[in-house]
Write a protein that binds this DNA or RNA. Structure first.
Lengths: 347, 347
DNA sequence: CACCTCCTTGTAAGCGCTTACAACTTGCGT
DNA sequence: ACGCAAGTTGTAAGCGCTTACAAGGAGGTG
C-alpha cells in the first residue's frame, strides 16, 4: 500500500536485508541486535559485519509492537521558564536513561494548553506518563490513569492519583518563624495566590500556621502569579500602600527577585526596611546582593524519583497514595542574616 | 508468546475490542480514530461510544509500524544547566507540537556521555534527530546521518552535516569594538577555551578580529570551561597576575557572573577598574548590579527552526549546508554604559 | 556403535494497526 | 424501471520485529 508521504517509503535496510547479507535467519539477526540468546561467535561476526556494511537501523515501532511496550516514559511539564522545571526534567531523564527508557516530553504553555488529542497522542506512545500537578483537569487524568500508569508530580494534591511532591508547609512555617523569632519581624505578608498551584497553597498554609502559633494576625495573601511581572506588580502595590509590611514571603524566587528589584529602585532598603524571602534557590538568588533567603527543593531528586516510581508502576506495582521529599531553608542576607561565605558551586 | 515482563501483558482493549463492541470492522474504527475517510455520523457515534466505554488507548507502535514512521523527532542536548538549553528545548518542542510531532529528549552529562548503544536506541525510535554540536564524534554523526535525517544545532561547524547556529563572530567583534571605541579600553582579555565548543572559538575569532582592526595586540585567551567555577578560577588568576587587563570578554554569562562576584569580593570595581561582558543574557544578567553587558541569542527561535528544518528533511528535503540566526549586543552597566531603564520582562 | 544431552539456528506465528480494493446500498437521471 | 455514480463499509494483506518451538549437529559416555 502507498503511505501518505512518499518520501517516507522505506529507504533503508530491514532485518530481512541484514539476514540475507549475513546468510542467517531474521531470528539470528534479532538475537545479535538484542544481545539475547545463544549465538556463535562466528555467526555474530557475520551479522555485525552485515549491519555495519548496510548501515542498518532498526525501526523501534516494530519491536515495540512485538513486545507490546514502547520502552519510553512520557513527561508533561509547563514551559521551562526558570530553572525549576529544568531541574525536574534533568532528574527524570537521568533516571529514565539508567533504566534504558526514552523520555517523550510535552511542554504546556500559557497560550497553548494541552488539549485532549495532543495528550492522547503522547499517552499512546509511552508505557507510563508523569504530569506536573495542575496542568490537566482531573477527569482527563482519571481516564488516562485507567489507560496507562500515571503519576502526578509536584503541585498536585489531587485525590485518586499517585503523586510525588517536595514538602512545602513545614519549610514555609520554618522560614516564617525565622523571620519572626530571629529578626523580630512582626508584620509579614505572603505574596502568591493559593489558587495558582497547590504548592503555593501549602506554602501559604505554612506561613499562616507560623503566624497563628505566635498569636499574630494573618494578613490576606497579596495574590499574583509566579512570574517576574507578578513580583514587580506586588512591589508597586506595597509602595502604593505605604509599605504596610516589614517582611515579604514570596511564593517563588522569580517573584522575590523582581520585587526586590523594584523596591530597591524606589529607595527601600532590603533587609533593613523590609526582609524578603523566596522559594526554589535559583542561580540568580545566589548572585543578588543581599543574597536571597529562600527554600531549596531537591527538584532533581524529585524528577528522578518520579521516573523510578513510574517505571515500577509500568512493571506492575500498585499505586500508593503519595511521596514527599524534604526541602531546606537557605539563609542569606535578604532576611537579615549575615551573607554566607560563597564558594564555587558544585556541578 | 510470553513477553519478558508478565505485567506488560496486554491489559487493555485493542481496535478489535472496539470494533466488536461497536459492531463494525477494524477499518471503520481506524477511520474514526484517525478522522480520515468517509464514515457516517451514526457509525461514528457508535464507535466513539465504544471507545469511551472501553477506555481504549491505541498502541502508537502499531500505527508507526503500519505507516512506517514514528511521528517523533529526537533531540540530544547537554544537561540543562543554565537557561540556554531550556530555551532551545522550548523552541524545538513548540515547533514540533505545531507539526503534531512528539519530542524524544536525551540529555548528555559530563559524567554520563552518550554511548553508541544509547544513541542508536534514540535514533531507532524517531524519524529524525537534532544533536547539539560537539556532543558526539563525527563518525557517529556521519553514520547516523546515513540512517535517519540529522541536524547539528549550535556549536557545530562540522563538515558534512546540515547545521543551524546563532551568529557569534560578528557580535563578538561588535562587543569588543564597543569596549575599545566607546569606553576606551585598551587591554581586553578573552575568558574561554576555543577547544571547548565551536561557538566559543567563533566568539574568540570575533574578539581577535576587532583587536587586529585597531592594530592592538591580541592576548592569549585565558581558557577554562563554561561553568561558574571556571569564572571564579579566571578571576583568581587575574587577581594573582595583578589585573593585567582593563576589560574581560567572557565566553558566556555564567562565567561572567562568577568572575564579577569574585572580583568584587576582592575589591575590584566593575566597570571602573575592569569592564566585564558575557554571552547569552540569562535572567541573572539582568539582576546583577551593575547589569551585565552581554549578547542575546534568539535561542528559542533556533530551537523552533531546528524542529521545522528537521521535519522538512524527514519529509524529503535535501540537506543544505547551514543556517545562521542573528544575535544582538545588549548594553548594560558592566561595560561602562548607563543602566537601561528596567521594565518588567515580557513572557 | 548407539544413545543421550546440549548448543546453535531456522521456521512460522503473531503483535495492533493502516488502507487499497472490492462489495453493497442508495439516490438520481433518463 | 433501469443504469450509473457516489458513498459507506468490510476484507485481507502487510508493515518489521520477537521468540516459542523444533530440528539438526556435535560431543561424550556406556
Amino acid at each position: 500500500m502507498a503511505v501518505r508521504t512518499p518520501a517516507r517509503e522505506p529507504s533503508g535496510p530491514t532485518i530481512y536485508s541484514v539476514a540475507e547479507a549475513a546468510g542467517v535467519s531474521i531470528a539470528t539477526v534479532s538475537r545479535v541486535v538484542q544481545g539475547t540468546g545463544a549465538v556463535s561467535a562466528a555467526t555474530r561476526g557475520k551479522v555485525l559485519e552485515a549491519i555495519d556494511r548496510l548501515d542498518y537501523m532498526p525501526l523501534a515501532a516494530a519491536r515495540s509492537l512485538a513486545v507490546r511496550h514502547h520502552e519510553a516514559l512520557g513527561l508533561v511539564l509547563p514551559e521551562l521558564a526558570g530553572p525549576y522545571f529544568s531541574e525536574l526534567l534533568m532528574g527524570f531523564e537521568e533516571a529514565a536513561a539508567e533504566l534504558d527508557l526514552s523520555v517523550v516530553l510535552t511542554l504546556v504553555e500559557r497560550d497553548r494548553p494541552l488539549d485532549a488529542a495532543r495528550f492522547t497522542r503522547l499517552v499512546a506512545g509511552v508505557d507510563g506518563v508523569a504530569v506536573l500537578g495542575g496542568l490537566l483537569p482531573d477527569d482527563v487524568l482519571r481516564r488516562a490513569t485507567r489507560q496507562r500508569p500515571l503519576l502526578v508530580v509536584a503541585g498536585g494534591d489531587t485525590v485518586g492519583f499517585e503523586h510525588l511532591a517536595a514538602e512545602n508547609t513545614t519549610s514555609a512555617a520554618a522560614l516564617t518563624t525565622h523571620l519572626l523569632d530571629v529578626h523580630g519581624r512582626t508584620r509579614p505578608v505572603f505574596v502568591g495566590d493559593p489558587d495558582v498551584a497547590p504548592d503555593v497553597r501549602q506554602r501559604l498554609e505554612g506561613f499562616t500556621h507560623a503566624l497563628r502559633e505566635r498569636g499574630l494576625e494573618v494578613p490576606a495573601p497579596m495574590g499574583g502569579g509566579l512570574r517576574e511581572a507578578d513580583g514587580t506588580a506586588a512591589a508597586e502595590r506595597l509602595l502604593a500602600d505605604g509599605l504596610p509590611a516589614d517582611a515579604v514571603v514570596c511564593a517563588n524566587d522569580e517573584v522575590a527577585l523582581a520585587l526586590v528589584e523594584r523596591l530597591v529602585t524606589a529607595g527601600v532598603r532590603v533587609p533593613d526596611d523590609l526582609a524578603v524571602t523566596g522559594w526554589d534557590d535559583v542561580m540568580a538568588a545566589r548572585y543578588l546582593r543581599p543574597g536571597l533567603t529562600t527554600v531549596r527543593q531537591p527538584v532533581r531528586d524529585l524528577g528522578a524519583l518520579a521516573a523510578h516510581r513510574l517505571h515500577e508502576r509500568v512493571t506492575g506495582a500498585d499505586p500508593v497514595d503519595h511521596g514527599v521529599l524534604a526541602t531546606r531553608v537557605v539563609l542569606r542576607g535578604s532576611c537579615g542574616c549575615p551573607e554566607p561565605a560563597r564558594s564555587a558551586p558544585t556541578a
